[in-house]
Design a protein around this nucleic acid. Structure first.
Lengths: 236, 236
DNA sequence: TTCCCGATAGTCGTATGATGACTTGATGAG
DNA sequence: CTCATCAAGTCATCATACGACTATCGGGAA
C-alpha cells in the first residue's frame, strides 16, 4: 500500500483545504455549481461522510451555499468570511488585491492604536515586565531578522492582552496572522529593524508611564512606519 | 399527524444549539467529558451522522475539543470564540457578566467612531441619499419603538458600508447583533428616541459635509448616550 | 399560445452498521 | 516498582439505503 502520510490533519479538513484553495483562487468561479457529493467522493477518493463534513467547513467560511434538493454552489465573494485566515490570506495572495491589503492595514491601525491606549491604562506590572523582557531580547536579536520578527509579534500580542479585552484579541487575530508574514518581509532589512526597536521602546515607555495619549501616538508612528515599509517592499 | 414544524433548521444545528446552550449556560462545566457519540444519539434521538455534524459545529465555535480515541470535552472559556453570536449572546445572558458587556461596548465604541470618520471621508452621494431617507423614516417612526429600532440598526449598517472596509463590517457584525437587542431595550423609552434621532441627524450632517472630526465626535456622543441608556436600563 | 399542475429524476438530509485507528488503563513479567 | 503488552472504549471513516426537497419537463385546461 502507499505509505501516504495519513493524518494528524483529518480527511475532511484536507478536502476542505483543497476546495477552499480552488474557490479562493478562482478555479471554481463564483456561482459555479459544485460537483455533487457523490462526484466529490470519487474525485477525492473519500467517503460521503468526509465530503459532507468538508462542505460544512466551506459553508462556515461562507464560501459555498448548500440547498437541499438542489445543489451546492460557490457564493459571491461579498459573502466570504474575511475573518477566516485561510480565506483572507488566499484572497490576498491570488487576487492582486491591493485594496484588501489597504483594508487590512487600516483595521490594524484602527484597533492597535486603541489597544496601545487601553494597554497604557490597564497594564499590570507583570505586563510591563514581559514587555521589557521582550525589548531586551529584541535588542539582542537585532542581527537576526527571523528571531526579531518572532519577538516583535509577541510584543504586540502581550500588548493586546494588556488591553484586557478578549473581543479585541479575537477580532485582531486573523489580521495579525496575515501581517505576521508582512513583518517577516519588512524586518529583513536591517535598517528598519533598529527603527522598529526604537518605536517599540517609545511605546513601552509610554505604557509604563500609563500615558495613553503618548502610547497611542507612539503606536501610530510605529504603524505608519510599518505601512511605509511594507508598501515599499511590495512595490520595489 | 403532528403539524410539528420540522425543518428549515437542520437536525445537526438543532442538536448543536442545545449542546451549545448547555455548555454556555454552565450545565456542562468546563473540562466535562461529553457523553459518547452513541449516547448523544439516543439522548437526542438522532443518528450518529447528525451528532457528529453537531459536534463539528461546537468545535468550530471553540466550545469543545475532540480527541481521536479519547473523548470529547468542554474547552475552557478562554478558548471559546467570542465572535460567534450564539456564544457571545449566551455568555452575556447566563453569566452575570458585566465585564463582557463593557468589552462589547468598548469594541463598538472603538470601531464605530472610526467608521464614522471613514464614512465621512468616503461616502458616496448614494450613501447620503440612503442615510437621509432613513432619517426621514425614523422621524416618522418616533412613535413606534420597534420600527424605529429597525431603522436605527439599518442606519448604522449603511454607515458601516459607507466606510468601505469589508473587514470592519465582518468584525463588527457579531457585536452589532448583540447590541441590536440592547437598542431594542433602550429605544423603548420615548424620551431617548428623540435624543437618538437628533444624534443621527448631527452625524448625517457631518458625513454629508465630509467633516471627519465632527462625524467622529457626533458618533462618540451618540454612543456615550447609548451606553448611558443601556446601563440605566440594566441597573434600573 | 399561455398558464398551471403533476410526474420524475437528481441531489441533499438522515439512518444504520461495520471496520480501522487511536487512547487509555489494566495486566503481567522482569 | 518499572515497563512492555494487551484489551476495551472511543472517534474516524466507509458503504449503503431511504426519505425529503427542488427543478425541470410535459401535458392538459383556459
Amino acid at each position: 500500500m502507499s505509505s501516504e502520510r495519513v493524518a494528524v490533519r483529518r480527511l475532511p479538513e484536507q478536502v476542505a483545504d483543497q476546495l477552499c484553495e480552488q474557490i479562493v483562487s478562482g478555479a471554481l468561479p463564483v456561482d459555479t455549481v459544485l460537483p455533487t457529493e457523490s462526484e466529490l467522493c470519487v474525485r477525492f477518493g473519500v467517503s460521503r461522510t468526509v465530503v459532507r463534513e468538508a462542505v460544512r467547513l466551506l459553508v462556515s467560511k461562507g464560501l459555498v451555499e448548500v440547498r437541499h434538493g438542489s445543489g451546492m454552489r460557490v457564493r459571491p465573494q461579498a459573502m466570504w468570511d474575511l475573518l477566516d485566515p485561510q480565506v483572507l490570506f488566499g484572497r490576498l495572495q491570488h487576487e492582486r488585491n491591493f485594496d484588501l491589503l489597504a483594508e487590512i492595514l487600516e483595521v490594524r491601525r484602527i484597533i492597535e492604536i486603541e489597544v496601545a491606549g487601553l494597554a497604557a491604562r490597564r497594564r499590570t506590572d507583570e505586563d510591563l515586565v514581559q514587555l521589557r523582557a521582550l525589548l531586551v531580547a529584541m535588542q539582542a536579536a537585532l542581527h537576526d531578522a527571523d528571531a526579531y520578527t518572532a519577538l516583535d509579534y509577541e510584543f504586540h500580542a502581550v500588548l493586546l492582552c494588556a488591553a484586557r479585552n478578549r473581543l479585541l484579541i479575537d477580532m485582531l487575530q486573523p489580521v495579525a496572522e496575515v501581517l505576521r508574514a508582512g513583518r517577516h518581509i519588512t524586518n529583513r532589512r536591517a535598517r528598519s529593524l533598529s527603527t522598529s526597536l526604537r518605536g517599540h521602546v517609545e511605546l513601552c515607555d509610554a505604557v509604563a508611564a500609563q500615558d495613553e495619549a503618548t502610547a497611542r501616538d507612539a503606536m501610530r508612528r510605529h504603524i505608519v512606519q510599518f505601512e511605509k515599509d511594507i508598501r515599499q517592499s511590495i512595490v520595489g
